[in-house]
Amino acid sequence: MTVVVETPPLETPFDIVRVAHVELFVSDLAASRRFYVDLLGLHVTEESEDALYLRGVEEHHHHSLLLRKGDEAKVGHLSFLVRTPGCLEALERHFAASGCSPAFVEGVEPGQGPALRVRDELGFPLEFVHELGQVESLLRRFHEHRGASIQRLDHFNFHVPDVQQAFRILRGRGFRCSEFIATDPPDERLWAAWMYRKPDVHDVALMNGRGPRLHHVGFWVADTGSVLRACDILAAAGERARMERGPGRHGVSNAFFLYTRDPDGHRIELYTSDYYTGDPDFVPLRWSATDPQRGTFWGHRAPKSWFEESSLLAAEDGGTVPIRDPLLPVITDTAS
């Protein structure tokens, strides 16, 4: 089997711009506020007894992270910004034709206009929205920056049991591929793929593993110094055990990174220094699944937890979405 991803982008009747926000259920809002606001440096746009609406210093929409009080840690929904209101109707037709049950909601989040929500073919709870509510960007209010000074939401990473199927589905939504990991010939198979709408490395990464689950949420920081500052802050605050992987540089994406776990175990990546992918003739970069530099360019091993643990997805009955074993083996880092 030959993996082929160098195909032209598909034309769609809708235009997904980028990731917009994510809703995470957490058990203790005070503990989450300390982690995300006091230590990492996100800013509170609005709060209630059961929710915190947070944004980075660059963002001018109401929130990119919604933390909601819940009985168990899980993912509520994953939201994407679309270009026009008409894109929502086109997406409704698209998902209905795919056998899903899309539905419009309104007034469920502050500042947000009508939104289309759907559980997609892969099992992920998705939301598509055009109006997100404008607020003041804090980019030039340097005296209010703190922690890692997170700039903006950058991407989602999904654990999926069948990467090739997920790749085809995202291609059908107009996503392009920047980089991918494949097993070696002669039985070459797609093991992971980085898919984008905005012109950088990814909005959604697909990774072979038990799923559907959310592996991590990636937040963009201004420079490598911000990543290192976050390490110092977490360590000084007695939270060094939360730093799961890094700091380091990825081979895939070229980005400098740190992975840390919030008080409920949700994985957060601080991410910077990837590259532009907006040229129409951009060709995806292939990595071998046996190349130790694919994950960490310097060759260091990732912990076993990074490959095996992810956040569960909320189900309509109040529980979580069942997960399935992957079609391919879970290949961990090969560095010594």
Rank of each mutant, 00 (worst) to 15 (best):
Q134K: 12
Q134H: 11
V135K: 09
E136F: 07
E136T: 09
E136P: 04
E136K: 10
E136M: 13
S137L: 08
S137K: 02
S137R: 02
S137C: 10
L138V: 05
L138T: 06
L138M: 14
L139I: 04
L139N: 03
R141N: 13
F142A: 12
F142L: 14
F142H: 13
E144C: 05
E144F: 03
H145D: 12
H145N: 08
H145S: 08
H145T: 07
H145W: 15
H145R: 09
H145P: 04
R146P: 01
R146E: 00
R146T: 04
G147P: 00
G147C: 04
A148E: 11
A148Y: 09
S149A: 15
I150F: 12
I150A: 11
Q151N: 11
R152P: 04
R152G: 07
R152Q: 14
L153S: 02
L153P: 04
D154M: 06
D154T: 02
H155P: 03
H155T: 06
H155M: 10
H155Y: 14
H155W: 11
N157L: 05
F158P: 02
H159Q: 09
H159W: 03
H159F: 09
H159Y: 06
V160M: 03
V160N: 01
D162A: 06
D162F: 04
D162T: 00
V163A: 08
V163R: 13
Q164P: 00
Q164I: 01
Q165K: 10
Q165M: 06
Q165V: 02
A166H: 05
F167I: 01
F167R: 05
I169H: 10
R171N: 11
R171L: 06
R173S: 03
G174R: 13
G174Y: 03
G174F: 02
G174D: 00
G174T: 00
F175C: 07
R176C: 10
R176I: 01
C177R: 06
S178P: 11
S178F: 11
S178A: 15
S178E: 00
E179Q: 15
F180P: 07
F180D: 09
F180C: 06
F180S: 07
F180K: 04
F180R: 03
A182F: 06
A182E: 12
A182T: 02
D184A: 05
P185D: 05
P185C: 02
P185M: 00
P186F: 04
D187H: 12
D187Y: 10
D187A: 14
D187R: 12
E188S: 08
E188V: 00
R189V: 08
R189Y: 09
W191F: 15
W191L: 12
W191Q: 11
W191M: 09
W191V: 07
A193Q: 10
A193G: 10
A193Y: 05
W194N: 13
W194P: 05
M195Q: 13
M195G: 12
M195H: 13
M195P: 08
Y196M: 10
Y196C: 12
Y196V: 03
R197H: 12
R197E: 10
R197Y: 04
R197V: 08
K198E: 14
P199L: 07
P199C: 03
D200K: 09
D200M: 11
D200A: 11
D200F: 13
V201R: 14
H202S: 15
H202N: 15
D203P: 07
V204E: 15
V204I: 15
A205C: 14
A205R: 04
A205I: 03
A205K: 02
A205H: 05
